[in-house]
């Protein structure tokens, strides 16, 4: 038992924190916790895409928007239950993930990153122009989450629901990492030719990575929509995509711990940098560059990095 605990203290501690924290904070604190959980799913999705598959996306705000509007519309227009809406949001995003990744059938290299740039602008434009569906400039009201007939009116209960979903998806990510599709992706990242010669279909795997990543981000978008209660196309800009990338990289693309740290960074940075509001994105950009130069493993790799530095000194 103690051995098990020594090996697994990180997830246990995180889970305990997740269960306790909502009781220790006020209403706004629960909103912050909910935001961290929402962002951590996006961060996790980029861990799959960049960390496992070695592909870059600067268009994840597009998938996020598809999840948010997808869920909101299914719930408001079709009267679907909240959880069905969330799932639909994820699936819609995943389908578009496949479309963005289709060029992987023919090209290698960083071309897909360019496609994600086009995709982000495309989604933004369509949302803005398609007023009858999205409300365009006016925006769109989204009902509070409801589960088995109970409306979760405050964020306290919603945080617990999100926690269940985040834990589930984190567990699925870890499963994916250790199973064959995940291993195949990491092999492709390390040596594409060797992986292909060993029988791994590159295009198929990259499309799967994009779909899975888009699915997570779509789920996140759906949860976000019902948290905020109001959608405006201005939330899903290109800057949002870039913030997502920044958070995932700074947290660390190797693990769910990194994903969580990234989400905390993205949620807390505006609170900390409130003084210099305009400079906040500049700080994001600089931290992104500095991180790549000095700490490519992100915040999650900090303990190990410090240990190795200390070892070198002695």
């Amino acid at each position: 038992m103690t051995l098990w605990l020594r090996k697994n203290w990180i997830p246990v501690a995180l889970l305990a924190a997740g269960l306790v924290l909502p009781n220790l904070v006020e209403h706004y604190g629960n909103f912050i916790l909910a935001s961290i959980l929402v962002y951590s799913l996006v961060s996790l999705s980029l861990t799959i895409l960049i960390g496992f598959a070695g592909q870059i996306s600067i268009g994840h705000a597009g998938f996020w928007a598809l999840g948010a509007y997808g869920s909101a519309l299914v719930v408001t227009e079709l009267g679907a239950p909240f959880l069905v809406g969330v799932l639909v949001g994820g699936i819609v995003a995943a389908l578009f993930g496949a479309v963005v990744a289709l060029p992987a059938l023919r090209v290698q290299g960083h071309y897909l990153a360019i496609a994600t740039l086009g995709f982000a602008l495309f989604v933004q434009q369509v949302l803005f122009e398609w007023e009858s569906l999205t409300g365009g400039r006016q925006g769109l009201f989204v009902p509070r989450p409801e589960i088995f007939g109970y409306e979760l009116t405050d964020d306290y209960a919603y945080v617990y629901l999100m926690l269940v979903i985040v834990v589930l998806l984190t567990w699925m990510t870890e499963n994916f990492r250790r199973s064959h599709t995940g291993r195949a992706l990491m092999a492709l990242k390390m040596s594409t030719v060797a992986a292909e010669v060993a029988g791994i279909n590159r295009a198929r795997h990259i499309i799967i990575a994009f779909m899975l990543s888009a699915f997570y981000t779509g789920i996140s978008g759906a949860l976000y929509a019902h948290l905020i209660g109001f959608l405006s196309t201005e939330t899903f800009t290109f800057t949002t995509s870039l913030s997502f990338l920044t958070m995932a990289v700074i947290g660390g693309l190797g693990s769910y711990v990194g994903a969580l740290l990234g989400a905390i960074y993205l949620t807390m940075a505006p609170e900390v940098f409130r003084e210099f509001k305009d400079a906040q994105m500049v700080v994001y950009g600089l931290t992104l560059i500095l991180c790549m130069q000095f700490l490519p493993g992100g915040l999650a790799s900090l303990p190990e990095r410090l240990r190795s530095l200390r070892r070198r000194r002695t």
């Binding site: 870059i56 600067i58 960083h110 990153a113 870039l242 990338l245 920044t246 990289v249 994105m281 500049v282 994001y284 950009g285 600089l286 992104l288 560059i289 790549m292 130069q293």
Partner: peptide, 11 residues
């Protein structure tokens, strides 16, 4: 390197 150029974009 790609991520760094995106960082430059933001900056």
């Amino acid at each position: 390197a790609l991520i760094v150029t995106i960082g430059l974009w933001i900056v």
